[in-house]
Computed example of a mutant assay.
Amino acid sequence: MAHPHGWVDYRITVMIDDDQRVTALKQSWKMDPFQSLTMIEGLESAEGQESMPERLDALGHEIAANLPTQHYLTHVYDGDQELVLGGIEDYTTQLHNDRVEFSFIVTLASPPPLSESLHWQVFDDSYFIEFLYDDQTEHPIELVNAPPQCRGEVIHADPDPAVVASVSVIDVTGDTPDGVGRLFSDTGVIKCHDP
């Protein structure tokens, strides 16, 4: 009954252009088995003659339309400064082993140079849904077009035990403090060693 009420396993691909600027984050969100089952049952019971792929496309359109109102659940920083996001491109919704997976690209409005000062978090501000890097994949963060000495790393969240205790008693109808989701969010970073 306590927060969170849904879980998403996710992967990030950092898109880097030929000028070594970070242009976008490609994300794949895999919904937890129960949430996926609920979504699939809803799609199967909907009226109409659409095929399941068509219904998944409609679900993806609905998710994509809602994300801008929630800052795409994505926060990218250069040092302490939060960067402005551009928008969503190339989203798809598919089933993988009975789990709904939503993939999309969120662009950066002004692509910054590739740097170790860049970092990002994916979270639901209300902590209704918890986002966790996909531990079933060897590389939950990949860099495309980066120098060979650079790689992505995950810094796992380490929230204060008192915060964990206070959030664990909030039920499905309860309100969470603003910004609590960030306290439980892992951070993606870029690390580059000397060649």
Rank of each mutant, 00 (worst) to 15 (best):
W29G: 01
A146Q: 10
Q27E: 14
P159C: 01
S51K: 10
E116S: 13
L143R: 05
E89H: 07
G179W: 02
K191D: 08
H61S: 13
A24L: 06
L85G: 03
T23D: 04
V163E: 11
L43E: 07
S117R: 15
V22F: 08
F128H: 04
G79I: 09
D98T: 12
I63D: 02
Y133C: 02
S115E: 12
T137Y: 10
T173P: 00
W120F: 03
Y91F: 11
Q121H: 06
P161Q: 04
T176G: 03
E101F: 02
D17C: 06
D19Y: 06
D178N: 10
Y127R: 01
P112L: 10
Y72K: 05
V22H: 06
F123I: 03
A64P: 01
L85D: 03
D18E: 15
D78V: 10
W120K: 02
W7S: 05
V100I: 15
S117Q: 15
S51W: 09
V122L: 09
K191T: 12
F34E: 15
F102A: 04
Q94K: 13
T173H: 14
E116G: 09
K26N: 08
S117H: 13
T23F: 03
H139L: 08
V189L: 11
S103M: 04
Q35N: 14
V164R: 05
Q49R: 11
V180L: 05
E142T: 14
I40G: 03
D32W: 05
S117K: 15
G86Y: 00
I190F: 05
V22S: 09
N66Q: 14
S45P: 02
